[in-house]
């Protein structure tokens, strides 16, 4: 009921928002307000979850901080707005948040009919299936007749239906609104299978009482390119968020890290000098200070550092870089140059 009420309030906000606001420059409003309003997941370890001191941490959270560092010069000036899968797009449409960083899959339907634009893919993911080891299931093809727990309002719900239909397998879905509820129901044995993005499965497995008793099956049944999205019709803001992502990648490629960024200011490498704003006027071109990328790396780190600290080798979740490695290291992450 609570989330329905919230959704209703957001919808009302869409209804009564005046025509002037949609076209208003998001950048100006963020600067005026002094904080970035960033939509994140209500709780998904590794991507966005409050820690024991109440600070938000995670991969998506760090992207919010990086945008705040670039735009406001201060990575702490972020107001995190937790959204469920169901509320997230309405929150962005209504203007409650400036950018949505919520492990959200980029699809054509969302890019076209929801009034939002995805700026890029900051995490290449795919849908996986988790089962209890006790079931002795080795492959998704053996899941005929299984009961599957899934979250509402996700691409996951549709991929699941497609996969089982294409492989002529029967199944029963049990649909919940929040990931916590799924976790409880799955552990209670209500479902045989828990399905969501593979990254989410690894993160959720850590929350379980006995993580060793669950395995993620080898099949990845879909493409889930996750990335930040913004409202359509504000190309300046779109460009800023997109280039924050590219700056993070370019910094890793150029070897600029949180630790060495001050020293790098004296570098003679023209690539590094351009990224850090020592050469050229690239920041001004997108409406920011010239040291925008410097602030991102100094305060948040580069893409690789964020990945390692939140979901990668340096975190409890320990997901391999895989497709999310730089293109120079056999991965898919590739950014256009800053020049």
């Amino acid at each position: 009921m609570k989330s329905t009420t919230k959704l209703f309030a957001l919808t009302t906000a869409v209804l009564v928002s005046t025509a002037s606001f949609a076209s208003a420059q998001t950048l100006d409003r963020v600067k005026q307000r002094g904080t970035l309003s960033c939509g994140v997941n209500v709780g998904l370890a590794g991507f966005s979850a409050p820690d024991d001191k109440g600070n938000w941490t995670g991969f998506d959270v760090d992207y919010c901080r990086a945008i705040a560092a670039a735009v406001l010069g201060d990575a702490t000036k972020v107001r995190f707005v937790p959204t469920t899968a169901k509320e997230r797009f309405t929150a962005l449409q209504s203007g409650e948040i400036d950018v949505l960083n919520r492990n959200t899959t980029w699809t054509l339907a969302r890019d076209s009919s929801l009034g939002l634009s995805f700026v890029g893919t900051n995490y290449y993911d795919g849908q996986g299936l988790m089962v209890k080891t006790g079931l002795k299931v080795k492959s998704a093809k053996e899941l005929d007749g299984a009961t599957v727990c899934v979250q509402t309002g996700t691409t996951t719900e549709l991929n699941l239906a497609d996969y089982f239909r294409v492989n002529k397998l029967a199944y029963k879905p049990v649909v919940f609104e929040k990931a916590d509820e799924i976790l409880q129901a799955y552990q209670a044995g209500r479902c045989d299978v828990y399905t969501t993005d593979a990254s989410g499965l690894y993160a959720q497995r850590l929350q379980m009482q006995k993580p060793d008793e669950h395995i993620v099956l080898p099949e990845i049944i879909s493409k889930e390119p996750l990335g930040p999205s913004v409202r359509q019709g504000d190309s300046q803001w779109f460009t800023i968020v997109r280039w924050v992502h590219f700056a993070l990648l370019n910094a890793e490629e150029a070897g600029i890290t949180k630790g060495n960024v001050d020293k790098m200011l004296e570098s003679t490498n023209p690539d590094v000098r351009r990224i850090l704003g020592k050469e050229g006027e690239f920041g001004k071109g997108i409406g920011l200070a010239n040291d925008w990328a410097f602030q991102i790396i100094k305060q948040v780190g580069n893409y690789g550092e964020i990945f390692d600290a939140t979901v990668g080798a340096g975190s409890r979740i320990n997901i391999a870089r895989g497709q999310n490695n730089l293109w120079t290291k056999g991965g898919l992450q590739y950014a256009p140059p800053i020049r």
Partner: peptide, 20 residues
């Protein structure tokens, strides 16, 4: 919707709203 029963709000105001 909180306990996963596919009622009107869960199916229509939940899934359908989100997919469309």
């Amino acid at each position: 919707v909180a306990i996963g029963y596919p009622d009107f709000v869960s199916v229509f105001t939940g899934t359908v709203l989100n997919q469309t």
